[in-house]
C-alpha cells in the first residue's frame, strides 16, 4: 500500500465514518430513545402508563389476597428466599387479611433480593394461583429497608406493619398451641376410643377364644 496509499485509505475511511455520523446527526427521525417520565412527574392515574410495555413484562408482584391459601410454595421455590409469609390457618386473628381459609398477617417480598425469576408464580398451586407479576417496575428508594413490599396492602412495608405482625405473632402462636392441644385431645380421644374398641374387641375375642381355631 505504501505511505501515500495508507494516508489515502485512512482519510477515506474516516470520511466514510463521518458520513455515517452526519447521516444520523441531520436526521431527527433516527432518534430512538424516549424521555422517561419519572414517577413524580406523572399524574396520579398514570402510574402504569409507560409506553411499549409488553403483556409478558415481569414487574413487581401483586397478590390476590382472598385466593391465598398460605401454602408456602412460592417461598419454598424462591431461589433467593425473598418471600416472607406469616399468618395462620388455625383461626381468626384480629386485623389479619382474609385469605382462602387462611389468615395472613404478613406477606412481603424484599425487592433488594428479588430477581424477578417468576418461579413463585409458576409454583403457585392451581387451586389458588394468587401471586402474579404486575407491570409496575419503578420501585426505587433511598434506603434498602423500604424496598420491602407488603403484598397484602400493595404498599411498602413500614415499621407500623412490623409492629402489627409481631403482635399478631403471639396470637398465632396461641392459636397453634390451641390447635396442638385440640389435636392432642382429639388424638387422646381417638386413642381412648381405639383402646376402648380394642378392649371391646379383646373382650369379644376373649369371650369367643376358640373361633379362629375352628377354622383349622
Amino acid at each position: 500500500m505504501g505511505y501515500f496509499g495508507d494516508i489515502y485509505d485512512v482519510s477515506k475511511s474516516i470520511l466514510t465514518g463521518m458520513g455515517v455520523t452526519l447521516k444520523y446527526f441531520v436526521n431527527p427521525k433516527t432518534i430512538t430513545t424516549v424521555q422517561y417520565k419519572r414517577p413524580e412527574r406523572r399524574g396520579e392515574g398514570e402510574l402504569h402508563e409507560v409506553p411499549h410495555l409488553p403483556d409478558m413484562h415481569k414487574g413487581i408482584h401483586y397478590l390476590e389476597t382472598e385466593e391465598c391459601i398460605m401454602c408456602w410454595q412460592c417461598a419454598n421455590i424462591c431461589p433467593v428466599d425473598c418471600i416472607v409469609i406469616e399468618g395462620t390457618r388455625d383461626g381468626e386473628v384480629e386485623g389479619a387479611y382474609q385469605g382462602n381459609r387462611a389468615n395472613l398477617t404478613r406477606f412481603t417480598i424484599d425487592y433488594s433480593l428479588c430477581i424477578y425469576c417468576n418461579l413463585c408464580c409458576e409454583a403457585c398451586p392451581e387451586t389458588s394461583t394468587c401471586i402474579h407479576m404486575g407491570k409496575e417496575f419503578d420501585f426505587t428508594s433511598y434506603d434498602q429497608g423500604s424496598l420491602v413490599k407488603n403484598l397484602l396492602t400493595d404498599e411498602k412495608f413500614t415499621k407500623e406493619d412490623l409492629r402489627f405482625t409481631t403482635n399478631a405473632q403471639s396470637k398465632i402462636e396461641e392459636l397453634a398451641e390451641e390447635k396442638k392441644r385440640k389435636a392432642a385431645e382429639a388424638q387422646a380421644a381417638r386413642k381412648a376410643a381405639a383402646a376402648a374398641k380394642k378392649a371391646a374387641a379383646a373382650k369379644k375375642a376373649a369371650s369367643t377364644p376358640d373361633t379362629p381355631a375352628k377354622k383349622d
Binding site: 401454602c71 408456602w72 417461598a75 419454598n76 428466599d81 425473598c82 418471600i83 416472607v84 433480593l113 398451586p125
Partner: peptide, 13 residues
C-alpha cells in the same frame, strides 16, 4: 427471617 418456612407446609398444602 426469610428462611422461616414452617416444615409442615407441604402437609398443609
Amino acid at each position: 427471617e426469610y428462611a422461616n418456612i414452617p416444615p409442615e407446609h407441604e402437609v398443609w398444602l
